[in-house]
Nucleic acid binder design. Structure first.
Lengths: 203, 203
DNA sequence: ACAGGTAAGTAAGTTTTATTTACCTAAATA
DNA sequence: TATTTAGGTAAATAAAACTTACTTACCTGT
């Protein structure tokens, strides 16, 4: 019984084909418009096989998002570790989020649009992975407060929300308008606003 | 044919009962879990009547959100008009958003969680009403730039996204955690972060 | 090398749920 | 008074999610 993979499920060909089929279909229509029959047909498997691997339609989405977000979390940890200044870490944190949302639009849409619409989403596994990734920001903030980069009179959790909110909003907008983001430029822009505020300098 | 109300539909008792039933049900379960039959039963009308007034299930949500958001837009215009300083307007804009999200949690949930999950949402009427409300922020920003309150080196649309993103994130979090927000306190907190940035003062 | 379990896979259902059709009734209108 | 029209319903339909009961083929321990 010790043959488990890193994730807690195995990936037989049928399962992989199902996930890929759903992903492909999500490229052209949205989740609720995609039929199980359609997924099965696209994958070239029987409908019932889907229910061997997934509890229900929504569970497919959650598992896919979970796998994807786990990869993102690992990437984020690696990328931040490569920076030594607090400021550099914050920049990398933001630019990596932008890169991720920019890179695979199908997953981005899943996460920003399909993912949240169920009351059990914030008790779900993918949610906690996403929060885990976003919470890396908290470490940066705490470090920044103690080394004097950031204000010490602000609640770190609150600051985190402020940062995430701003970044996600920009990403969401680019996805809605189907515009690609230049991660470097946008990061600089966001960081500037976050760090210096919107008030005229020297006010 | 000139008997139209201010909104483009009339409100006979059956229709009102249906909307109220849906709203009540949304208080305890989420949209996709609510059945048409259940709505009809709660409203005390026949299922078919629902389709007299609404194209489909999703259309019910859109119409309800549309009506609600139209009220919010009107409120926002009135409230901002009562301020004369740019700074006061920004504060009022933010505190009103917080108040609205705080006030009726069922509508907030609809808007933040159910509303976005369809690709046609950003071509929908409620979306354009919401954007219209949020765009009031643009006027404030432009005014603030010309009167020297805000930085002139920032794109107003971008600044708008930054502000909305931060505010919405905080509201979303309070809804997820079912915590009520003290609009005054939180507004002061957000405005401070937005205006002055997260960087240590005098950096 | 073979019994027995187990994972991958399927055909053909059942059930659930959104949506339609065809109809009734009463009030407004011409 | 005839007729349209708005509010409303019972009962059918259709579509899609999900199950059941069944193969087939591959491991695995004796």
């Amino acid at each position: 019984m010790n043959s488990e993979k890193s994730a807690e499920h195995s990936y037989p060909p049928g399962r992989v084909k199902i996930s890929e089929a759903l992903k492909n279909l999500l490229g052209c229509k949205d989740f609720q418009a995609i039929k199980i029959a359609e997924i099965a047909e696209t994958a070239g498997v029987n409908e019932a096989l889907i229910y061997k691997y997934f509890r229900n339609k929504r569970d497919m989405l959650y598992q896919m998002i979970g796998d994807y977000l786990e990869g993102c979390r690992v990437e984020m940890i690696r990328v931040i570790a490569g920076q030594n200044s607090t400021f550099g870490k914050l920049e990398k944190f933001i630019s990596t989020i932008i890169d991720i949302y920019n890179r695979d639009r199908i997953y981005s849409k899943m996460i920003l649009f399909e993912f949240r619409n169920s009351s059990d989403y914030y008790t779900s596994k993918p949610y906690s992975i996403l929060q885990g990734t976003y919470d890396l920001c908290l470490l940066i903030i705490r470090e920044g407060i103690s080394d004097g980069t950031f204000r010490e009179d602000i609640n770190p959790c609150f600051m985190r929300q402020h940062i995430i909110g701003s970044v996600e909003q920009v990403c969401m907008n680019s996805i809605i308008t189907s515009r690609s983001l230049s991660s470097k430029k946008i990061t600089a822009y966001i960081v500037d606003l976050l760090v210096n505020g919107i008030s005229r300098r020297g006010n």
